[in-house]
Structures are given as structure tokens and as C-alpha cells.
Design a protein around this nucleic acid. Sequence first.
DNA 1: GTGGTCTAGACCACG
DNA 2: GTGGTCTAGACCACT
Lengths: 125, 125, 125, 125
Amino acid sequence: MLKIIERSETPIYEQIVQGMKELILKGALRPGDKLPSVREMSATLLVNPNTVAKAYQELERYGIIQTSRGKGTFVAESSAPGMEKERLEKLRSSFHQLLVEAGFLGVGPEQIQAWMDEFHKGIKE
Amino acid sequence: MLKIIERSETPIYEQIVQGMKELILKGALRPGDKLPSVREMSATLLVNPNTVAKAYQELERYGIIQTSRGKGTFVAESSAPGMEKERLEKLRSSFHQLLVEAGFLGVGPEQIQAWMDEFHKGIKE
Amino acid sequence: MLKIIERSETPIYEQIVQGMKELILKGALRPGDKLPSVREMSATLLVNPNTVAKAYQELERYGIIQTSRGKGTFVAESSAPGMEKERLEKLRSSFHQLLVEAGFLGVGPEQIQAWMDEFHKGIKE
Amino acid sequence: MLKIIERSETPIYEQIVQGMKELILKGALRPGDKLPSVREMSATLLVNPNTVAKAYQELERYGIIQTSRGKGTFVAESSAPGMEKERLEKLRSSFHQLLVEAGFLGVGPEQIQAWMDEFHKGIKE
DNA sequence: GTGGTCTAGACCACG
DNA sequence: GTGGTCTAGACCACT
């Protein structure tokens, strides 16, 4: 389900967070689904348990997953789109910088549009 | 010209790099233009000279600027878009992840499209 | 393994870079091998950690080594010879200049040929 | 006769030194020939006079040129191949490092041999 | 414990 | 005056 790139510059815990988000967004994980335990996950990903724990904490902090003591961790019922102003501004700024990078690599709006279309096809299934 | 956000999680030197890229892409800095000296820049940004130097070296590595010994630093003549496969793939993946984030924040394709249009208006001037 | 010449005109960090390249080329360091940590290396070479770090970063930029957060630095799996046109031209020009120097020192082609043979013997082992 | 690359990483004065050496080695400049004055040279190369002066000093230090007060500077009669042990060792070490670089760029002995042959053709004319 | 970033302050080569 | 290198010492994020 998840693939960790050991040598990526994005931290492993962040890769887990992002991977989970994507799985949920694409519907592979649905509200109420049970997540593998920290130990299981760390075993399958060949990753330090602390790292998985940190990822889960991050996800919980954003209300994306919930832990029920003794039962396990589950995808939260309402992944309420927070629309928090701060995070939104961060997103906007990231996108801005990404477009600058694209400009320097000779990647035009059409290409980005194409990438976008391709991505949203994967979501609407 | 450049604004540094102290508490940002993106390193200062990286902010300088990104800022310069944007200034060049927007045409505020043109090929052959002289950049402020390391010491000047460090004074105006209230940042350590080493930090500015690191940013300049990074920019030079990408062929975006060039330094002439004892004379100063200048915007390179042809920032030839390398179209390097590796960096391109990185960009693509960043965009992918950005769209995941957008999905969780309830930001749809239309909004992103709007941001994109706005950005490219700033370039074509 | 590495020897630093304090008074050399080539910077210390560059000497480290070159030394590591040689060790790898000769097979003393193989893909996947762990490099000494920045702190270790700085201790054994009697050099500032920042200097070692700079060398490691340079090596990483060329894809020769890779760092895993919190784990350490490793020799990259496939130091794919980029065959980048620019670096190749630089090499050629360096060699050209070296031959000029040789001419002035009375070193003829035969001597250079001999050096070359000796070097490649060290590699093919 | 000489071409200066403004943005090269090798200092301008060094480029002049190397260029003169090459001209002499190839026979374009012969013992006894008069060199352009510092002012002339600085004018034609569009370079700071101090820079040319430094190059001339360097060349004189190695006994390659000689200045006669009031008359000008001339190519020395006997560009005696000093065979100084120290410089020779430096050359050898430079060549060694060059071969390491070549190895990483995928440049084999044959290619280097070819470069060498080509160079020596230019000399023997 | 690992590397990454930053500061402060110093010296040097180049033009 | 310009950038390049180096040191010393500090804090932080990641595992």
C-alpha cells in the first residue's frame, strides 16, 4: 500500500503521512477503516516504530485519524476540510513556488494542466 | 526586493534562492544584471553573510547566476532550462503531493486553475 | 584512509572530495558502504565538522553518495557516469593545460603514458 | 592571440600565464621575442593592468620571460626545463587526480590517449 | 547519534 | 571591495 523511499529528502514520517492522505483521498481507505498498528506498520515498512508513531501523531493532530485506546487507530469519520486559513495560505505559497520552479525547468502551464487532469482522474473513480 | 521569514520552516538560504529565481523569472532581474554583494545582501536582510553566500553558490550551481572573481555576482546570460529528467520528476511529484494536500483542504481544481492563471499573468508582463 | 595536506592550495573540503572519489574508484569503498559520520571524520582529520559536511554535500550533489536522515551517509548504488557535456569539456581543457605544463617541465608523452599505465593498474585490481 | 574567459573559475592572471606558456610551447612566441607591454596587453584583453602585471611577474618568476628595464619584456632565451622536483611532483599529482575525475565521467584511457596524441600533433608542427 | 542550518568572526586570493 | 574558505560553537529535525 505504501512505499517508502529510504533516501528521499522528505523525511520518512512525512512520506507516511502523505501516503496515508493519498490513500484516504483516493478512497482506498474509508472513514472507520482500521489502520495497521504502529508495530505492524513498522514491520512491513522496515522502519523504526518511533517513525510510524510520529506519522500517526501528525495525522491525528489534523483530525484525519483517531485512536481508540486499546482498540486501535481508525480513519476519522469526518475528514472535515478544515479550510484553516493558515494552511490554505501555505498551500497557495507552495504552489506559487512550484510554478517558479516549473518556469526554470521550462515546464509550461499546459504541462501542469495535464498533470492536474491526470491526478483528478485518479480521484473521481 | 526580498523578504525573509525568520520562522519559516524553509531555510533562509533556500528562501533567498527561491526569491532570486522568482525575481529573475519575472524579469525584475535580467541577464547581466549585477546582484547585490554578499555583504550588502546580508546587511539588508539582517542575515549572516555565510547564509547569503550559500544561497549564491546554490544559484550558481544551477547556472542561474555567475560570479566573476573580485567583481561580483551577475545573472547568467542564458539560464538554459536544463530539462533534466531528475529535477523534472521531482517537480511532478511535488505537484502530485500538493494536489493531495489541496484535496484535504477542500481546494478544488478550479481554485488551483485560478491561482495558476494569476501567476502566469505576472510573468507575461 | 584519507590524508589532508594543510598547506595545499586546494581547499580541504576539495581534498576530501577528491580523496573519497579515489577511494570509491579504486573499490576501497563500495556502493552501500557507510561513510564515517561527519563528526568522526572531522575528528580523525583534525578538521572542522563544517568542512567535512561541505565535502559530503558536494559528493551528494554529484550523486556519488547519499544521506539517510539520522542514519548516516552511504556510497550511492550506481554512480551513473553522467557524461555531462560541460564537465567533460572541463576535463579536456584541464588535460590540455596539464600537457602544456608538462612540456615546460620537460615531461614527454612517454612519461605521461607511464603514469597513466601505473594508475590504471591500481584500478583494475 | 590570447583569449580570456571572464567567468572562468581559473583566475584571469592565471589564464594569461597559461596562455603565454602555450604560445611559447607551440612556437608562436620564440626566445627573444618582445611581449606587448602591460598597458597594451591590458588594453587588448580588456583587463585590469594589475592583472596583466601579476601574470608577467609569475612568468618571470619561472624564468620564462625577462624584463629589461626601459626596453620591455622578452621571452627568455633558455626556457630551461627546470625539472624541479617539487613542480614535477605537483604535475604528477594533478594528473593523478585528473584520471580519477576521468574515471567518474566514464572517460577511459583510450580517450585520454587520443587527446594526448591530438595535443602533441599541435606541438611538433 | 546523524546530518542540516545558522551565526560570528577571521584570513586569503582576486581585480 | 568581492567572493571563497575555515573555525568554533550552537540549535534543530530525524531516526
